[in-house]
Write a protein that binds this DNA or RNA. Structure first.
Lengths: 224, 224
DNA sequence: GTTGCGACTAAACCTAAGTATGGTCCTCCC
DNA sequence: GGGAGGACCATACTTAGGTTTAGTCGCAAC
């Protein structure tokens, strides 16, 4: 396992610096890539197999994965599927010496960032990594927001969740009250509680949260 | 140019039936594909060149395009780029006899649905077409909604657009009034007008429209 | 030169939303 | 058996949202 970092300014590795993971059974490839990434100031961690990568604790920073299609035990494509199934959505850049088109299509369909044929130009790899990191940064930001919203939504009581659904669907308090069979004042109280628990500053704010949470489409009951 | 359709029930071509466009300079390929699609009840229109396709009036139904990478004058890849640049976003399925991986990657990155190597199995082509049509149906639905919203938004006066931005951002009438330097009653009047013109049934409704229109992010002024 | 429209405002009025305060009823848990 | 918490409701009150009517001002098109 090789770890590299830019030496130019003696900065210590920040928690927000992205990491590039490399998996290849050929040590010379690992070293070459590590050197390449180090030369542009990217933290790099290399592994000889998919198994080793999985042992490593998942990094909590934007990252991407450079993978050879032909891995020792598991094929790169299958590994990609495994990761997806396991809910690990790190962007993947494939390398291959003798890949074919169906492989490429499968990888790209499954969300790969790029598929480089060896030998490739350093710049192509760096471009792909830049894209991949940016994509991961985006994905992580969205996931963070979503997780926070889900936690807040989970802190609501069942009744509050129901009221939130109806209110964000555009119903007036009295309509919500009629719908669920309670007094209007009760809806108002629930509503105030919802705004506090969700930390919504305004109704539009709450509506946007509901949108992100996908409320009123698949869950609960559909309103007309 | 070959046009086919399922003969089983003597149904006439409905405006909502999807169309498969085929572009290939080899007549036998065109015929084979037309027969294949006709056998499953898909309307098909085939062309010998990209130029002929462009002469044809764009169909106003869900559709997709089957394209050979190696086209007479223009390469399939370049043609894909042309279409994208021209704002034509029909899903493309590529076929190739001797394609390579960089071509495949480029096509997939540019949004191609699939990239089939000849000879391919009929079922693979049909699956790709199904996916492509479904994707186009989705895209068209979204585009339609967006176009309607944009038209409604364009019917607003500049002031109304400004008020809509601030209101959907969560500001109260009095805050909007202070922000733009008018009386609160004026904001209320604008607001009522906005609801009518946008055909919004409720504030949450209007907020969702603003979200789709991307209001409050890139356009106008950013609120704090 | 007047007609139309966008922007603005006031007064009067009504409905909707939101916030206490205070209290009942029930259930689950220690 | 005594909390704790969820759901419910009433009264009273304040603020926010929204309409109608009626009118001023400026500008551009006919």
């Amino acid at each position: 396992m090789v770890t590299g970092r830019a030496a130019s300014p003696p900065t210590q590795a920040s928690a927000e610096d992205p990491i590039v993971f490399v998996i290849d059974d050929d040590a010379s490839v690992r070293d070459a890539l590590s050197n390449l990434f180090r030369s542009v100031g990217l933290r790099t961690v290399a592994f000889g197999s998919a198994h080793e990568f999985l042992q490593h604790k998942p990094a909590d920073v934007p990252s991407c994965l450079i993978l050879d299609i032909r891995l020792p035990r598991l094929s790169g494509l299958d590994f990609q599927a495994e990761l997806t199934k396991a809910g690990i959505h790190v962007p993947i850049i494939f390398m291959t010496g003798h890949g074919d088109i169906p492989m490429t299509v499968r990888a790209m369909k499954a969300g790969a960032v790029d598929f480089l044929t060896k030998p490739f130009r350093d710049q192509d790899m760096l471009d792909a990594v830049t894209t991949a990191i940016e994509r991961d940064r985006n994905r992580r930001d969205k996931a963070k927001v979503l997780a926070n919203l889900r936690a807040a939504f989970a802190s609501l009581t069942p009744r509050e969740r129901q009221v939130m659904t109806l209110v964000t669907a555009g119903l007036m308090n009295k309509q919500v009250a009629a719908e669920i069979g309670v007094a209007e004042i009760t809806v108002k109280i629930h509503r105030g509680q919802i705004m506090r628990k969700m930390a919504a500053k305004s109704l539009p704010d709450l509506v946007r949260m509901a949108e992100i949470l996908g409320i009123g489409r698949a869950s609960g009951r559909a309103q007309t």
